[in-house]
């Protein structure tokens, strides 16, 4: 099942991924990182389709996308 890992130490809480996710499954954390930012989290991992859009828009390359064989190939990048 596709999924993402967010490196919260790289995240600056800009929320661009939250805005861009077609599945609307990203949300900001309640706690803050050592840098003082809220960070993005995958609210509902089961509905992630591995489309990579969150990783595309992330200015800080904080999101790594992994698929378990299944991937919803929307575009080549």
């Amino acid at each position: 099942m596709p999924g993402i890992t967010i490196d919260k130490d790289h995240c600056k809480g800009c929320e661009l991924c939250v805005q861009a996710c077609p599945q609307r499954i990203l949300a900001m954390s309640k706690d803050i990182t050592v840098r003082g930012y809220y960070y993005a989290q995958l609210a509902d991992p089961s509905r992630c389709i591995g489309c990579r859009i969150c990783a595309l828009v992330c200015p800080d390359v904080a999101i790594e996308v992994n698929t378990h064989g299944l991937m919803f190939e929307l575009f080549d990048y």
Partner: peptide, 14 residues
């Protein structure tokens, strides 16, 4: 077994 493939990661040049 379905291997876990990374399809998006930090480029070496960054």
């Amino acid at each position: 077994a379905v291997d876990n493939k990374t399809v998006f990661d930090r480029p070496v040049a960054l």
